[in-house]
Amino acid sequence: MKMKINFGLAINQALHQLFSTDENIMLIGQGVKSPWYVGNTCTGLIDRFGENRVIDTPVSENAMTGIAVGSAITGMKSIVVHPRVDFVLYAMDPIINQAANWHFMNGGKSCVPVVFWLIINRGGEQAAQHSQALHALFTHIPGLKVIAPSTPYDVKGMLVSAINDMNPVVFIDDRWLYRFDEDVPEELYKIPLGKGVVRNSGNDLTIVSFSYTAKLCEEAVKELQKYNISAEFIDLRTIKPLDEDIILNSVNKTGRLLIVDGAWRFNGVSSEIAAIIAEKAFNKLKAPLRRLTLPDTPAPASSTLEDVYYIKSSDIVKSAIEILKF
């Protein structure tokens, strides 16, 4: 059985089904009672599973994140949600010092099956501290996995994998994705972490993206067809561990690469992918690769400034055409 549901409801469905099949799963975080914070993703969870396992919290990001880590160390599978990525900056110690290092520094004696669920909530003139996309910070850290799915089908299957993973996983969510819907199987299923997917096959150039900008890339690929440009589009889904093979195989075929990341440019995911291409596909490139990212400035408030700040699908089309003109 499949049902057409949107991205937020796919998360909600995954949580309901996971909670009902495994009593060691718990969710903690600011706003799990409130659609203001978490949209429709947590609807019905408290009513069904109780306030012992679904915990709305005081505004104490550092301790709440550490509590999720401590619960995971002692036998729970915990999820901690931060309804704005910006808020998690209070909680870098439990994520980076503790969870990421834990299994290694304790010689494999202890695991931390925790999901750090971080929601990007940009746009709407929310300015610099409600808009940041900080996934690159986490991809820098050994011991963390970082996922950023873009479709309802993927988010459900990847959440199931992430919550059942015995390692800490950072789940980068984006409220801009919540409006998209598609058919999602009703039963539980897993999508492996660390595997990208080719959403569109093509020969002229490779476009790589993930999370919300993946949706923009899908639009751009259709637009490029009008110019007779056949783009191969890869949705990475997981950004660490990175599916290098899927990128290299495609670039080896097309010889051209556009990387689209809705976050900052310097030392970002796009820089890492560019470095991998330089190291492993140097002589395959027919044109310099290009990166389409946010400018290295904070997010503005005013809508006129937001308009030039965020990536649009027309920017992707333009960059692709320029690569082909080289």
């Binding site: 301790a63 619960s71 160390i73």
Partner: peptide
């Protein structure tokens, strides 16, 4: 002995999480 680290106060929230596990179970 569930966790020992040199970040000052670094395990206080972890210990609180362990106590939460015990309360849930």
């Amino acid at each position: 002995v569930m966790g020992i680290v040199p970040i000052v106060a670094g395990t206080i929230s972890l210990a609180t999480g362990a106590a939460l596990s015990s309360k849930i179970r």
